[in-house]
Amino acid sequence: MPVVEKQRSDVILQYLRPKKKFPSVWCPGCGNGIVMGALIRAIDKLGYKRDEVCCVSGIGCTSRMPVYLDFNSLHTAHGRALAFATGVKFAQPNMKVIVITGDGDALAIGGNHFIHACRRNIDITTILINNFIYGMTGGQGSPTTPAGAFSTTTPYGNVEKQFDPCGLAQAAGASFVGRSTVFHTPQMEKMIMAALEHKGFSLVEVIANCHTYYGRLNKQGDPVAMVNSFKENAVMLGKAQTMTPDQLKGKYVIGTLHENKEATEFCDEYQKVVDVRMAGGKAR
């Protein structure tokens, strides 16, 4: 993997679609833009050809990201990004397929596709930007809204429990699982690079701020306060292992949480079948 240690900050500008209007649709200070920057720098450092990258997304604030990026882009229906991405990757196994999704998109309406993509261990990198709420529709509770937290559909506090996307992915068979936050941008960037280079299904969960809805409804109204709260509440994996569940309450364990380089990848395994059948192997 070619690693360029230092790079110009203007590299991002080279990867923005020339015919798309900027600034983006996102609110001032939205974490989505921070992740987008890190993703671009990661791809640039890895030296991928733009024609060999395909960004797939569903519906939501986060899912607007691929439209701005000068790669092949597929902006699909709510929750279905991973299913579309499976079709793209399986049809063109040499394509670097990146799914950009949010907590509602990936874990509620798209929950089934999420676990099955993990199970297949298909070589797709999923960047799940977790802001604990539905932003585009105006601040409704999502599968990652913490218990007790307020949203426009949990006006008296959330009575449901939240998903742990990383735990879910690992249990379902994903072979690379990591978590970072928009505060820890250099770490996030390195983690995205590692995920892109990983063969198999990789998940990078990025804790991000939706101060407009989640912050305002939960007394953390501005982007600075929210981003700083990620700094305070993030715990590196190594340290987290020495902490009790009570101590970890409300904390985000960050770092590469799971990596299995031995797991077989779906497209590779299918190609083996194709090679045998094309050579005239007899069907059982």
Binding site: G31, G37, V182
Partner: peptide, 18 residues
């Protein structure tokens, strides 16, 4: 130090740092 531009969500800061 790069903190400002890596956290700029709108790519509005370009550093002269090479």
């Amino acid at each position: 130090c790069t903190i400002c531009w890596v956290h700029c969500p709108d790519f509005a800061i370009v550093s002269k740092h090479k």
